[in-house]
Simulated assay, not measured.
Amino acid sequence: MGGPLRGGGPAAPGRPRGAAVLPGRVAAADRAGGGRRGGGPGGGRVPGTAEDEEHPPLREFWALRPELFAAVRPFLTDADQDVRASALFAALPLSEHPDLAGYRPELVGHAERFLAASTDRYRRGRVLAVLRRRGRDTAGLENAEDRAARAERLRRPADLKARGCAVPSL
């Protein structure tokens, strides 16, 4: 095994052994920082809420966000597009820390470049959700698939209610 950001996994063509593990490490930080349930892109948890205060290990993790962001930030400009994307998904939830507010405009730039190049519907949705939560008008960044997916998400609760299903309020 290598250093803290390297491992012994298979290398991508043209990359040194261990470098291929970095996206996995960054993805692990993404899952820890946000993921589907967390405060990251598309997640439902809001950092700094009473729910976090009642769970000391989570509070300790959130306190580490500046250090984790410092480790991830250099990879936002990596030559490999997959590494850049993984770094972006790790950095977005980490940047919710108040000490990292100054980096948010930089991340918006990375997010816009990602959206201009990506066709990954799930990841695009996560990035667009973060931008919308931060007050950004995303209409010019969305493609037809993004708009259709958003319309579908908005329609589902109404369809459930129409069929008599209980729909939790958010």
Rank of each mutant, 00 (worst) to 15 (best):
G48T: 06
A27K: 02
G38Q: 09
L5R: 10
V127K: 02
E53K: 04
G43C: 09
A70H: 05
E152C: 00
A91F: 05
G48I: 03
R132L: 07
P56D: 05
N143S: 03
P41N: 09
L64Q: 13
A144G: 03
G140N: 10
G44H: 09
D82W: 08
A85Q: 08
V21Y: 02
R25K: 06
G39A: 13
R126Y: 07
R156Q: 15
S86Y: 09
V46C: 02
F61W: 15
A166I: 14
P168R: 15
L88W: 10
G35V: 08
L94H: 08
V127Y: 00
R15A: 10
A166Y: 15
A29V: 15
R124P: 09
R15N: 06
R73Y: 12
P57R: 08
R45F: 05
P4M: 11
A116T: 05
D82I: 02
G9D: 04
D137I: 06
G109D: 11
A151M: 01
A166N: 07
A166K: 11
A151Q: 06
L22A: 13
E106G: 07
A151I: 00
L88Q: 07
F69A: 04
E142T: 05
G33D: 13
E152Y: 05
R36Q: 08
V21A: 05
A117D: 14
D99E: 03
G2P: 11
R163G: 04
G33I: 12
E152R: 11
L68N: 07
A29G: 09
R65Q: 13
R31A: 11
D120F: 14
L58E: 02
E67D: 12
D137L: 05
A79V: 11
L154E: 15
V130D: 01
F89M: 08
G102M: 12
L107F: 11
N143Y: 02
R132Q: 13
D120K: 14
E60P: 00
D137W: 07
G102F: 13
G140S: 12
G8H: 04
V127I: 08
A50N: 00
V21N: 02
V46H: 04
V83L: 04
L22D: 07
L94A: 06
G33Y: 11
A151N: 01
K161F: 04
G40L: 14
D82N: 12
D30S: 14
T138P: 08
A111G: 10
P93M: 12
R121Y: 06
R147A: 13
G35H: 08
L107Q: 13
